[in-house]
Design a protein around this nucleic acid. Structure first.
Lengths: 227, 227
DNA sequence: TTCTTCATGTAATTAGTTACATGATTGA
DNA sequence: TCAATCATGTAACTAATTACATGAAGAA
């Protein structure tokens, strides 16, 4: 009853963009485009696609390549209706899952090498996004992308992922520089550096005017450089 | 067959920082600090804590508040050993799960209002991080944070989350401006704007001289039937 | 006194992953 | 013809969520 089943709706959305998809094409699409903001194992796709058929939201068609079967899917009228309904529901919150950051959080329990390995992983995660972005972005610019007609929304997604990726890489770079600075520093110096990092970040938060309640003396003056 | 069980290790890490934790304190900690990079349902904590005891990595202690029981946990020597081992293993990739972005991806199938709702959610997600950051950050600056001695690593986490949050908010702002620009624009103008967004992002990628070349093959979604 | 929030869990269910198995196609 | 990779799934399992139930403490 309370089933949101986002993955199923994601597939439904793909089905709505083209008249027929083989399961393989669906998985390829998820690998290429959606994995960075809705990552799922490929076996899940097979499962969900079958589920859609079971609910009458898609229909399947069998064909053969040699003696090996293949299933293709197409959206039904009921499927389109369900998709519209879903798109009108409130979105779920964004979540980030960053195991390397957990390791940094617990970093004092481990080694310097472990800390650096965590940073390296985050940098690699960002690079992986950019690597795909370069290929896909150039396709759109060339006008040859598989869903060129969707470019107006895809550009927004592209912008998101690009910034996300660069955030990861830049953070890894900054943090590595901090680790480098630590060597030869006293505990006091390290602490001072850390507090400065926190202060720098806080200074850049725009205080939300909506929620400023009691007294403005609480706020730091001189933060008037908003864009 | 590798059992990493990151959530269990996360709890183990908390246990290593203090001599005893009640389950409630563990859940509170996860809500306050870790939920933005390792979000888990609270019921999971109870489960995992029991699991740690079962494996001898922690021991539990029962007490009472009135007639109601309470369980507290402490790490064992074996637990510390396991924790060290885990910290030395390679980190897992970062993943982002952004349902609003999926909605933007499929945005042409829905309404303008739905698109804006997705952006609003992302902005809210960023704000939620900053709201906690303000409180926690000031605690560290004041020297009164519960784990003040961990400030050197916590500052790095703080830096990450601050930038992540601002990335979300800035993207929502930019994208909303794009939606505003769309009204009164022709399809050609919208497309031009979108391509410009993609171009701007690509221009800012440093092309990694190391991994040039590779494959432009991956594209080509077959069946060139496009609307 | 009653309401709300803090605190402590259990039960039922589902979503998702890992591992495996195997046919078809390509190209060296 | 052999290996790699493309393509198509299934089985087994576990991690995780939702929903529920209820006691204690403090505020109104």
């Amino acid at each position: 009853m309370r089933r949101t089943a986002t993955t199923a709706n994601a597939i439904l959305g793909l089905l709505a963009l083209r008249r027929e998809w083989s399961t393989w094409e669906l998985t390829k699409q998820l690998r290429r485009n959606m994995r960075f903001f809705w990552p799922r194992a490929e076996s899940q796709i097979y499962e969900e696609a079958k589920g859609l058929v079971g609910k009458g939201l898609a229909r399947d068609r069998q064909s053969f390549t040699g003696k090996r079967g293949r299933t293709s899917y197409a959206i039904t009228a009921a499927g389109r209706k369900q998709l519209k309904r879903w798109l009108a529901t409130p979105p779920k919150p964004t979540t980030l899952e960053c195991e390397p950051l957990l390791r940094v959080f617990l970093g004092t329990l481990g080694t310097d090498a472990a800390l650096r390995a965590a940073l390296a992983q985050v940098r690699a995660d960002g690079s992986a996004v950019l690597d795909v972005g370069r290929v896909v972005g150039l396709e759109y610019l060339a006008g040859t992308a598989p869903f060129q007609d969707q470019v107006v929304v895809r550009a927004l997604v592209f912008d998101f992922l690009s910034h996300h990726a660069r955030m990861l890489i830049d953070w890894a770079d900054r943090s590595e520089a901090v680790l480098d600075a630590w060597s030869g520093q006293s505990d006091e110096q390290r602490t001072a550096l850390s507090l400065q990092i926190i202060r720098d970040n806080l200074d850049r938060y725009p205080v939300p005017s909506a929620s400023l309640g009691a007294d403005p003396t609480e706020l730091r003056s001189g933060s008037g450089e908003q864009a």
